[in-house]
């Protein structure tokens, strides 16, 4: 992940629910009220780039945590169960545009062993489905539209690469056979 990577920055912009554990002066704007202190126990949605650094103290085991993190709705148990049931029917894009990257970052902050398996299993199942669609342009139009709309950013890249490589191979083969004639 590079400092200049646009997708990494967009991943960082995704929101995570947090609870403030101490009262902090002048941070009311995080909640939407300017110039008011943020009270202990306030729940706000903070972007990952802010929540991560504030949440770090949690892991270092300092006396008082600044904030405590929760699972974002996109990774909530309800979604996990849906993914366990059938990975291909979940619209990941509407949950989070950089779904897997978000999961990766959250797993760095929270201990969720089961989530690791669910996410990697989901990716494997969906990758096969994506490859299928990428190689059959006819299939996309008839049935796969709904599924392809729900791809997250990584999966979109995967689809694009698979699609273009299939096209390139077809072009290469036809070029070679026409050259022989």
């Amino acid at each position: 992940m590079s400092y200049y990577d646009i997708d990494a920055i967009l991943t960082d912009a995704q929101k995570v629910p947090c609870t403030f554990e101490i009262t902090i002066p002048g941070l009311g704007y995080l909640e939407g009220n300017s110039n008011i202190d943020i009270k202990q126990g306030t729940r706000v949605e903070l972007p990952l780039w802010l929540a991560e650094m504030l949440g770090v103290s949690q892991r270092l085991g300092t006396e008082q945590n600044v904030i405590s993190l929760d699972l974002p709705p996109a990774l909530a148990p309800r979604v996990q169960n849906a993914l366990k049931a059938n990975p291909c029917t979940v619209d990941l894009r509407s949950l989070a545009s950089h779904y897997y990257s978000l999961g990766e970052r959250i797993l760095g902050l929270l201990e969720e062993d089961e989530l690791v398996d669910i996410l990697s299993e989901t990716f494997k199942k969906r990758a096969a489905e994506i490859a299928d669609h990428a190689h059959n342009p006819q299939g996309v139009i008839s049935s796969g539209g709904e599924f392809l709309k729900g791809l997250d950013e990584n999966e979109r890249q995967l689809f694009k690469t698979a699609h273009e490589s299939a096209k390139a191979i077809r072009a290469f083969l036809s070029d070679r056979s026409s050259g022989k004639k």
Binding site: I24, P25, V66
Partner: peptide, 10 residues
């Protein structure tokens, strides 16, 4: 001053 420090951090 952990609260002020946190505000600075933000």
């Amino acid at each position: 001053e952990p609260a002020t420090a946190c505000s600075l951090l933000v």
